[in-house]
């Protein structure tokens, strides 16, 4: 089952990249997508039916504007720190705890943290994440988790779990 879904996704990506429905292009696309499926299909998710559940798609659509808004705020923040003549930074690496269980949700949490204000993931280990923070507000695990991770966790939990 997951091989079939992987094949469909790869073929749709090919069609988007070429935007051309001549017969020869489609044949080459089928061959390339089959090769990709044979080689990489084993690494794909175990439960591909999650792609078809509508409430997950709904929360993805809600999540994208929230994420872009946080990214924009992050850039204003960095621009302020770059252009300020005294470089107001107080960096440090803190440790936070997440309540997300699945691996893919943790990866998306780490990527979201990297692109949002002043924080950047160093390593994920179990349920702890090491975060480089450009302006350390708290070194306790609970307080730092509340400041850094909680804006995203509620969306990601609804999308992936």
């Amino acid at each position: 089952m997951r091989y079939i879904i992987y094949f469909i996704i790869a073929f749709c990506l090919w069609l988007l990249l070429t935007l051309n429905v001549n017969l020869d292009h489609v044949i080459v696309g089928v061959i390339v997508a089959l090769l990709g499926t044979v080689v990489f299909g084993g690494y794909f998710t175990k439960k591909p039916m999650k792609f078809l559940q509508l409430h997950r798609l709904f929360w993805i659509i809600i999540y994208i504007p929230v994420f872009i808004w946080y990214m924009f705020k992050a850039n204003i923040d960095v621009a302020y720190r770059v252009l300020h003549p005294e470089r107001p930074i107080k960096p440090g690496i803190v440790k936070i705890k997440t309540s997300l269980k699945s691996d893919i949700a943790k990866v998306f949490l780490a990527n979201s943290i990297t692109l949002t204000p002043g924080t950047m993931t160093c390593e994920i280990e179990g349920e702890y994440l090491y975060i480089h923070w450009i302006w350390v507000q708290s070194t306790e695990i609970e307080k730092a988790s509340k400041i850094i991770a909680s804006p995203f966790e509620k969306y990601l939990r609804r999308i992936f779990e």
Binding site: M71, F72, A74, N75, V78, A79, R81, V82, L83, R87, I89, P91, T114, L115, G118, M120, H132, I134
Partner: peptide, 28 residues
């Protein structure tokens, strides 16, 4: 934002702060 990220790459004092500033700004 791209040019601000490049300026941050030059101005910040160590690798980790440089990586923070430049990655965020240049990606967006």
């Amino acid at each position: 934002f791209d040019i601000l990220g490049a300026i941050g790459l030059v101005r910040f004092p160590d690798v980790y702060n440089r990586l923070q500033a430049s990655t965020k700004c240049v990606t967006l």
